[in-house]
Simulated scan of single mutants.
Amino acid sequence: MQIRSKDAILTPAQCKMARAGLGIGIRELAEQAQVSTNTVSRFEAGEELKGRTVTALQAALEAAGVIFIEENGEGPGVRLRKA
């Protein structure tokens, strides 16, 4: 499942992978994206959210150093920016 808004390409799986790569929990991501922890949990469980909410999650993860890789035939993914 891929949720798209104008600039968001974030999938629930990418969100989980990004958090794991950064070593942050749901609470920390929620705080950085200025959404509730329940919102992050619902998104990662596959519930559809408003585009602006997905964009906020994606922006927070990108600001923390995540690069999102769009579907390229092998599936979407994540990468951490070099320090």
Results as ranks from 00 to 15, higher is better:
residue 37 T to V: 03
residue 45 A to C: 05
residue 41 S to G: 11
residue 69 I to N: 12
residue 76 P to G: 14
residue 39 T to D: 02
residue 48 E to L: 06
residue 62 E to C: 13
residue 53 T to D: 04
residue 44 E to S: 05
residue 48 E to V: 12
residue 70 E to D: 13
residue 25 G to H: 04
residue 22 L to Y: 03
residue 41 S to E: 08
residue 34 Q to P: 00
residue 33 A to H: 07
residue 55 T to P: 13
residue 2 Q to G: 11
residue 16 K to W: 08
residue 30 A to I: 02
residue 1 M to W: 15
residue 1 M to N: 14
residue 13 A to S: 15
residue 9 I to Y: 08
residue 20 A to G: 10
residue 35 V to T: 12
residue 25 G to T: 06
residue 72 N to P: 07
residue 9 I to L: 14
residue 6 K to L: 12
residue 48 E to N: 14
residue 69 I to G: 03
residue 36 S to E: 03
residue 55 T to F: 12
residue 54 V to R: 06
residue 15 C to S: 15
residue 49 L to T: 07
residue 67 I to N: 13
residue 22 L to S: 03
residue 1 M to G: 13
residue 53 T to K: 09
residue 20 A to P: 02
residue 47 E to D: 07
residue 57 L to A: 02
residue 75 G to I: 15
residue 35 V to M: 05
residue 39 T to R: 04
residue 67 I to C: 14
residue 61 L to E: 00
residue 14 Q to I: 07
residue 77 G to Q: 00
residue 39 T to C: 08
residue 81 R to V: 09
residue 72 N to I: 15
residue 32 Q to Y: 05
residue 11 T to H: 06
residue 82 K to T: 09
residue 81 R to H: 05
residue 30 A to Y: 01
residue 62 E to R: 15
residue 17 M to H: 10
residue 42 R to L: 04
residue 75 G to N: 11
residue 61 L to N: 04
residue 6 K to Y: 11
residue 53 T to C: 02
residue 57 L to E: 00
residue 15 C to N: 11
residue 14 Q to T: 10
residue 36 S to T: 09
